[in-house]
Design a binder for these strands. Sequence first.
DNA 1: CTGAAAGCGCTTACAG
DNA 2: CTGAAAGCGCTTACAG
Lengths: 338, 338
Amino acid sequence: MKASLKSISKELNISPGTISRVLNGKAKEYRISEATVKRVKAYAQKVGYTPNLVAKSLQASKSFTIGLILPDISNPFFSTMAKHIEQQASAMHYSILLMDSDEQLEKETKALQQLYSRKVDGIILCPVGFEGSHYKEQFKDMGIPVVFVDRYLKGIDVPFVSSNNYKGAYDAVEFLIQKGHKIIGLIQGDQKLLTVNEREKGFKKALQDYNISFNTKLLLGNGFNEENGYVSIMQLLKEKNKPTAILCMSNQICLGVLKAAKELQLNLPQDLSIISFDENPYAEYITPSLTTIKQHNDKMGAKAFNLIYDLIQGQKSEDPSFLIDTEIIERRSIFALL
Amino acid sequence: MKASLKSISKELNISPGTISRVLNGKAKEYRISEATVKRVKAYAQKVGYTPNLVAKSLQASKSFTIGLILPDISNPFFSTMAKHIEQQASAMHYSILLMDSDEQLEKETKALQQLYSRKVDGIILCPVGFEGSHYKEQFKDMGIPVVFVDRYLKGIDVPFVSSNNYKGAYDAVEFLIQKGHKIIGLIQGDQKLLTVNEREKGFKKALQDYNISFNTKLLLGNGFNEENGYVSIMQLLKEKNKPTAILCMSNQICLGVLKAAKELQLNLPQDLSIISFDENPYAEYITPSLTTIKQHNDKMGAKAFNLIYDLIQGQKSEDPSFLIDTEIIERRSIFALL
DNA sequence: CTGAAAGCGCTTACAG
DNA sequence: CTGAAAGCGCTTACAG
């Protein structure tokens, strides 16, 4: 059945070592005779020999596997990243061990332990937690390189790839302002997240640069989910000085806003202009078609793999972290007040 | 650093075998003294011993890993399945090696080889190919149980989980007919796919049951992608007897139809009623909101894992394949002609 | 040019 | 109650 070096060895009367050398293309290096090389290759071919990677991994202390932990693989935002990570990985003969933390720290911790136990060569993690110290603790004596993707943390020195969230929000607000909006609401994701903080900063800075005074009440919400979008916009619309435009920090938040708008029978975009983080294939067909801030998570994924790959090879770049610019996809959900 | 049975053995002056037995909860079975048990456990705890799973896998010829090959992990349809597969798997202490075949047979073949090489305990595959014989060939002497998910094939005896595509299409057409539609178009996915054939059968059967004659020209298309949706609907609308309603075989096809409708400035749903396979979170906010045929891919994923799990345990159920009913989510994209 | 041996970190049948 | 040994399938330093 499944051939091993041993079984081939027996059949051919050649030592496993020699066979291993031939099959690993080290025939020259070891000056193995043409004759044996031919015999070995022919026979291996014939029986369809495939090396046992777990044996190889054990002896090499290297598994050619990288672990990927994502908060929600069913979310296209993450699955797109996963796809591009996998693509890069398989091109470099790496395989991906995928784990879904489901936004739960507990599951993430278990996943991390699994990956450690399985001796992955590196880990790409979109962290669910908020404290650098928490991860510092976990990564200590794990001896496996880690890279953060999308989300990252203060207080821990781990390379990361993320969108340029600051600039993304800044650009969005500037865009709104140029359309004549002055009262702009912001519905945030989890405020403990650095990415959220960055967006908030970008939001405020844009207002400031255009001399628009900032109203704390227009900035609320605390979660990347539909529920938060719904509740927040309902709240916002009750303000005496209610916003003419709203910036949503995620596609899910936007869904909540759309839900509320529908319920309230708002006339979009006249009653409310919307711009939202995260592009999606339906944006064009929603009424009004949605202006979005596209994150290039294909690039983020690919870059994340490159980072971890370099780390595995022992190449530590001096500035190992990357911010990838977002892009505004203009459609018709922003009403021009000018 | 990283503790091993050996290092603990040295430190404690207890043989690796005994330590292994203690740490694997076989102390009673081997009647190991309370004293040693305590010492071992305490020390293992202290140094944070974690078993090396690759060593364990090698010796047990069992990796507690299952391979998952999907045609496009970035598609929410598949990533939702992936999430639920992973969820089930991790609950049973299995890990998932994820591969994206990108709808390419060549990549799929490589992925399969990788998984074989990595000695996964089982494989969940959504096949990209069309011929049972092709897979029969590949699975031969692989010695690893395989289960198909979503797509399956004739001419090969592999358990599968899929939607009840026949019934899904039948129900959709019946639904349309009950709204008064008699001229109904169907835009198909890849016609080599059994799932597509099943839907076609369901489509035809419904027409037949309601005594509506079937017009070959209203049935076209050959791919689960936007382009096909676009081209096909354009074609359909040129018919003298053009359809009043259209059934799309996938979310992507539907996107193509929406694109065409927008270009043609059709007045939906009066000018054209639409029902489409695959639910999506934006369906509610498209104009008109989209009536969809929801596939329960959460259940499909979970079931697929259960199937492979049973197979791994050596339990072969007599009828190992499952069809999961779809569900119509009614919205406003179907115009009532009655 | 090629083989025998050791070792990667585990587990388990065999002794005692 | 516990240890020594063999073996899972590989690779590579050491000999010759």
